[in-house]
Design a binder for these strands. Sequence first.
DNA 1: AGAAGTTGCGCG
DNA 2: AAAGCGCGCAACTTCT
Length: 565
Amino acid sequence: MTAAPPAERRIALIASGAGSYTAVELDEDDAEVRRDVVTSAELAGWVAEADTATQTRWIIRSARETYATLLADGVILNRTHDLLLCHAILRDTDAVARPLAPSQAWVRREPTDAAPSLFDALHDDSAGDPVDEALEQYREQRRVIASGRDGRLTLLCAAESAGGLIAEEMRVAGLPWDVAAHDAILTETLGARAAGGGIPSRMAELGAQVRSILGDETLHLDSQQKLLRALHRVGVHVESTSRWELAEQSHAVVEPLLAYKKMSRLLSANGWAWLAEWVHDGRFRPVYIPGGVVTGRWASAGGGALQLPRSLRPAVRADPGWTLIVADVAQLEPRMLAAMSSDRAMARAAQGRDLYAGVVDSGAVGTREEAKYAVLGAMYGATTGDSGRLVPRLRKVYPRAMAHVDAAARTGEDGGIVSTWLGRSSPRPSAEWSRLQSEATSADADPAVVALARRRARDWGRFTRNFVVQGTAAEWSLIWLAEIRHRLQQIPPSFTEAAASGPFARTPHLAFFLHDEVILHVPEQHAEAAADAVREAATVATRRLFGDFPIDVPLDLRIAMSAEK
DNA sequence: AGAAGTTGCGCG
DNA sequence: AAAGCGCGCAACTTCT
């Protein structure tokens, strides 16, 4: 029997003038009990004081808009309710009878080039008092959250808000990046860097070789059209220049061309120009956008943070005296599916490190590769090819799990809305989609229209099928992140204590997050404690979502100087 | 010339 | 060996 959680103190903290904030404390009924005006200079001390007395949840407009400024002033917020992030969830949720009324004032604005200022926060579309508007919006959101069942929206909003803080903190902290190691990888792979940003030596040689084989010494290899014509001239009859199609050909040009394309990609996406633009003072600082994907996954802007090629992972290196904790979950999505559908057979297959091995043991398929394609096909909605062929076998062995995703697909095909485990809902299909569907149902509908409508319906069904799984996995990951952060705060000195001298210069901190993987940057003496925090956080995330349902979510975790695998 | 769309490939 | 989901970005191509 666990004690009831301590009552949470709630204080709205809203920028209310140049260099000042208004702090409004609320009672249990959301009525105002106290109002203070605090200058930014006083804020760090004031917040730290308010946070030590008891757990405080800070109601803020948006971590994205304001937390960077707060962090720069040495202010750490431990728990927040992020009105912008929660507005998006509560406005669209299908988990309650009356969702939040949409409001333009609470829609995320695209970031401006300059750092967000207090001035911006004060001059949004609305004319009213920013503090009163924030309080009113918060009370509306609380009403919606309270009307949900099992506290799921409470958990989702808390986790989403924590994500908002973590995204900003990771940007401030940055991912430790070894420029020399990156440069060495580039030189090793592409050859010596050319003066003036030209083509590096190995890549240039390979390009010359490809042109020679294609019999055109001046061919521009980056133009798909010209390349395609050149390929046709030498008898390579592909329809596109994409890698998978080229790989099926046996012509002598294929190998050097594919190698060239690989190099070209590395150079343009993560070459020396990327290094100069994105890595400063040994840190890569991407912009993370929590909730940027409809499913709840994070997106990123700038630097391609979520697409860093694995070949560059050795460039992620801890500072001297520090180390990295690199942890990821193997097959997070099918584990979530097993739990959310209460499919005990699938949960049994998920016991231990390799879910695919478990699927093979169940007798559904013969090999691990088949298991992988079958499971991915089930979650993505494959109907053809090897993957589509294997999916029906899973339906026999894991009927509950399959019924769950099949139902989500059917709902989508019918134009309905599906929701994640915690209640984030899929968008409504577009008006154009709906119009096409109704056009196709009329008695004299053109067969071509009917066929197109059918195809679009299946497309949308594949989206909703995947939405419930991908979105629930995103929820697990958010809770994992939040719990990691919470535990790192227990390792002294906490961010709060270290805030004045740059909160992450001395303390263990999250440095990178990619859907189901985290990287922590940690002083060596705290490595074991931080690793424990990551493991415990995973256990807690699973329990928070699924209670006692027996689902394993094992981590691959290592403590290392570099993120190299 | 610059905007908008397409292709191809990196990540989960 | 497959062609099923979600993204961001660079470069090329086409549109205005």
